[in-house]
């Protein structure tokens, strides 16, 4: 049981919780940064979290290289499109 609790998966979960707190804090208008910059930062933190879920929880880390490429490609494409949309709106 203890090997399950003190595992790599638990460390990833803790990192995800910290990242959620960070993006939530940014979403409360904390700091003196421009709203567009904060929005871009929130999207970046969100897709870092998404990458952890895909590669660690979904175990794509141990999958063939083509699945790594598809996962990374999708993350780059969608986060890129969302960030571009936020910046164009500015």
């Amino acid at each position: 049981m203890s090997s399950l609790i003190w595992s790599r998966t638990t460390v990833i979960w803790l990192l995800l919780v910290v990242a959620t707190g960070l993006s939530w804090g940014m979403g409360q208008g904390v700091g003196a940064f421009d709203v567009q910059i904060v929005s871009v930062a929130i999207i970046i933190v969100t897709f870092v979290k998404v990458r952890f879920v895909i590669f660690e929880f979904m175990e794509i880390r141990g999958a063939p290289t083509w699945m790594h490429r598809v996962g990374n490609g999708w993350i780059m494409l969608i986060s890129g499109l969302l960030i571009t949309r936020v910046l164009i709106a500015a």
Partner: peptide, 12 residues
């Protein structure tokens, strides 16, 4: 994770 960011946080 993405819905939470887009609906609740982005642009506030």
């Amino acid at each position: 994770i993405v819905l939470f960011a887009l609906l609740y946080l982005v642009g506030r």
